[in-house]
Design a protein around this nucleic acid. Structure first.
Lengths: 197, 197, 197, 197
DNA sequence: GATGAATGAGAGTTCATTCAT
DNA sequence: CATGAATGAACTCTCATTCAT
């Protein structure tokens, strides 16, 4: 009835797209690529299944978009560490805290799903392979070196230390503890012991 | 009458069943219930898809059998800790070592899949809910208390300490590091720092 | 929002469902539960096999629905006898006529299939056991008694007379004579001789 | 161990074949071609499924053999009527009696299955088409004509009378009344009324 | 733009048939 | 001859994707 102008339409489209990606993230993160039905995403996003296809060519494409976003967000999130106040160990503490918040976890769980599923499109594998751990280590290396110099962190190869620490965090996040009462998320201070001398 | 006697037949059947369960464990652990096609298991076991159904009524039943076995094996494995030599922390070190070996990891990954998938048959949920973390804690509590008394372990609620430690181990195992070079498995001594004062 | 309003959609769904049940009746009646492939029903109904499953959860459920309908329709059909004009024997004549029409036959053939197949779901057995012959006899007993009193029907236990007569009709209907030229459907007056003194 | 001579082997083979056909008749008659699994026949015959294939090339071939036998036996059975004592109607009474015995019914049920199934091999259709009703009518025509002449049977086209009567009997036999308590087999004298003036 | 009916490719499962023993 | 383990074609059912409205 009311003809919308181009600008309004674009706004609707952007909102819809965002809405779909949010819904898809929730579902994909928990159920993986194969375990997720397009109808689940549609339900979660409160739209029809058909509409998904106006915004994403296929389930695979939607998954890829999410992984891209996850990679970018996680990198951006880690880079924030340098804007944080305090000594190296305090920065790492805050970073750890934020990573373990529920929202960040969804991205990690998604990346875990992406890594684990074999049916994943090649693009995803490339994204993950080229971007994940090595990039994080590159970003964090200066911070950890500084921490070692000031004696807050255990000695040894800093890259290995980072890699191990992030592996522990990744593992914890894939456990989906908010759903599962069997597991207990360790406190940040407990986790930091891994890094201490 | 019978060309093969009952004993020979039983041997074939036992071998086949074992062969199938081994193959299925590998595939299910990595890809989950839905992500696994029966044809993948058949290929991995070097048999035809049809033969699977002479040994297991359905994909679900096969999955359930494996989870049962995983639950039993993991409990049995943890109980072995008391037969190990050395002080509490030395026992825990050896236990950790063994858990992180590849074979044990498959069982943990399977249980992770079982816990995470929503489409899993009810029997599996019951098995997991009733058996997993709480049982492990019950088994390990005396050992950890002793460790605290002799000053090898950090103070605090021992049950919580165990739960957190096992959560870290579980998380690491789900990462499937043998496949994935992005992650690095921390050394046991690094992990033990979590438990140290 | 919705391009087709709820009423139009409902109409489509009702039509489809009716169309499927009609097609399924034809095929099941002739070939039985196991002998019928869903693809046959789909072809007969001019739709795709997949669409069947939006209307019926499974082949079994579709079969059950049809048997329910058959039971209801056959009972309703027989009750109509009391609305017919004429003496008892004339009523029975008309009833016989109608039962032997092709459409009614499909329902009887279906019920025969349901009774004969061993693989039939339990619900079907219950439906058939509780509803078929005894109910018909209960309905027709007063009519047959009256017929005997006015001397139009042979003497003897009226319930047995009804049961035998309906058995003959049922048997004839299962023969699927419209397809099979080997058999010849007896005329109604010939069949009525069974009931005559 | 004990080498059997050719004659003994042949005897075993013949017995086995007979044993299989008997078992197969029971199962096919009740469940039809598609509804019958080779394993059911094997179980009923107390042999292994594999052994069936030493005696019959395929399920279809076994079915065809049975239908051939059924056709022959039913024709032979009907021809016996002329050896019976008594007037035409008395002969027909005895024939009817024998047809309705359980054993004869299996053959009729089998032929009904053969006629009804569409998946039946062409050979079966030819057998049935060329042999069944028309042949029976040819055999019985003289007897019925005689019955009409002596005034025991209703007037009219004798061939039609025979066809209708046999249709009624066929129908009754397909109902499998020995299994199904819903139906009641009419007495022979009741059935004969169809033929009476 | 939005819906949901409709399609069809592909996975789970069954069973006739083969074959090593 | 006899068995039953093994295979693979065919069927049921699911779900990503398309399309009429």
């Amino acid at each position: 009835m009311t003809p919308l102008n181009e600008q309004q339409l674009q706004k609707i489209r952007d909102e819809r797209k965002e809405q779909i990606m949010e819904a898809a993230l929730k579902v994909f993160a928990r159920r993986g690529l194969i375990g997720t039905k397009m109808s689940m995403i549609a339900t979660e996003a409160n739209i029809s299944a058909g509409l998904l296809y106006r915004y994403f060519k296929s389930k695979n494409e939607l998954f890829i978009s999410l992984v891209q976003q996850a990679v970018q967000e996680s990198i951006a999130g880690i880079m924030e560490v340098y804007k944080l106040p305090g000594s190296p160990i305090e920065k790492i503490k805050t970073l750890t805290d934020e990573i373990l918040q529920e929202d960040g976890q969804l991205y990690f769980m998604l990346m875990h799903q992406a890594r684990t599923s074999d049916e994943v499109p090649d693009e995803v594998n490339q994204l993950i392979d080229k971007n994940s751990m090595k990039t994080y280590i590159d970003i964090l290396e200066p911070l950890f070196k500084e921490g070692q110099e000031v004696g807050e962190l255990a000695a040894g190869d800093p890259r290995e230390l980072i890699s191990c620490y992030l592996s522990v965090l990744s593992g914890l996040m894939t456990l989906d503890m908010h759903r599962d009462e069997n597991y207990q998320m360790p406190s940040v201070s407990m986790l930091l012991r891994i890094l201490r001398c």
